[in-house]
Design a protein around this nucleic acid. Structure first.
Ligand SMILES: [Mn+2]
Ligand SMILES: [Mn+2]
Ligand SMILES: [Zn+2]
Ligand SMILES: [Zn+2]
Lengths: 141, 141
DNA sequence: GCGATTATTTGGAATTGTTCCAATTCCAAG
DNA sequence: CTTGGAATTGGAACAATTCCAAATAATCGC
C-alpha cells in the first residue's frame, strides 16, 4: 500500500542481489502491487506504458524475471496460458475460475501446508509446493 | 499392464464419447502405459513412430488431447516447459526433480485431499486440484 | 458391396508466448 | 569528465502448440 515502504523494500531486495532500482523495475513492481489481479506480462506492459510510455515488452519480461528472482513476486501458471504475476508473498494457493478466467489467492494455513508435505515419501526433498484449484467462484468482491 | 484390458477400456471410453478406436490412438495410449515417465508430446511421437512410422506429430497431439478429454490421461505442466502426459488415474501429486528433470507420482490419501479442499472459502467450487512439488529426489528406482 | 457422409489423419503454415541478441543508453566510480 | 558494466530497447528467433485444407479411412443407408 505505502509506496515509500514498497519502493524501499524493492530497493533493498534488489541491492541484496546486487541489482539497481531502475524506474522500469519500480513501475513494474508498483503496477503489480496496485492491482493484484494476476496480470500477464502483456497486461503489465499495458499498465506500465501509462507511466513509462517508451518501455519495451522485453524490459517488462526482464523486470518481472528480476522480481521473481528477488522473491518479491511469484510467477503463476495455469496449463499453458501466459504466465501471471502475483506480489502476494504469504503462502497461498491459486483458484482459477474457468468461466471468468479470474485468479484468486487462497491463504494456506501452515497446518495444511505441513500435512501436504507429509505425503512425500522418504528421499523426496521439496523446495516448494504449488496448489492450484480450478472451478467456479461465486462473485464476492 | 495387460494389453487386452487396456485396449478394451480405451475402446470403451472412446465409444462413450462417440469416438473411434484408431490404431494411432491405441498406440499413443499403449506407449503411455508402457513407460510411465511423463513423456512430452515429442517423446510420445518418437516412441509411437517405432510402431507407426508414418504417424504425424499433429496426430500425436490430437490423440493426446482425445485421451485427456476421455479422462484416460492427465496433462501435467511445470512452469512453461512442454506438457507431459500421465496415464495414472489415481489421485496423485507430482514431484518435479529440478536436477534430473524427472517427474514422480506421489499418491494423495483421500484425507489429505479433503483437508486441502477445506481451505476454500464459501463460494469457491473447485472441480479439480493440482498439487506440484519441486525439489530434489534421492534415486530409489 | 457401393456411393455418400463423416471422422480422422496428415504435412505444413500460422500463432503465441517468450527468449535472444546486438546496439544503444544509462549510471556510478574513479 | 571518462569509462566500464548494467540495463534497456526493438526486432529477430525460437519452441510448443494449434490451425487448416487436402487426403484417407471408417461407417452408414441402401
Ligand atoms: Mn481459463
Ligand atoms: Mn526442471
Ligand atoms: Zn497469488
Ligand atoms: Zn502422474
Amino acid at each position: 500500500m505505502n509506496p515509500i515502504l514498497a519502493s524501499d523494500s524493492l530497493t533493498q531486495r534488489l541491492a541484496d542481489s546486487g541489482l539497481r532500482a531502475t524506474p522500469q523495475r519500480e513501475v513494474v513492481y508498483s503496477v503489480l502491487l496496485r492491482k493484484r489481479d494476476h496480470p500477464t506480462a502483456e497486461e503489465v506492459f499495458a499498465r506500465v506504458k501509462a507511466e513509462l510510455p517508451t518501455i519495451s515488452l522485453a524490459t517488462v519480461y526482464n523486470c518481472l524475471e528480476t522480481l521473481v528472482q528477488c522473491e518479491l513476486v511469484r510467477a503463476v501458471n495455469f496449463e499453458r496460458s501466459p504466465t501471471r504475476y502475483c506480489p502476494n508473498l504469504r503462502p497461498h494457493a491459486h483458484f482459477h475460475d474457468e468461466q471468468t478466467g479470474r485468479t484468486y489467492d487462497i491463504d494456506l494455513p501452515p497446518a495444511v501446508l505441513a500435512e501436504v508435505n507429509q505425503v512425500l515419501p522418504a528421499g523426496f526433498d521439496a523446495s516448494s509446493v504449488e496448489i492450484t484449484f480450478r472451478g467456479q467462484a461465486r462473485a464476492t468482491s
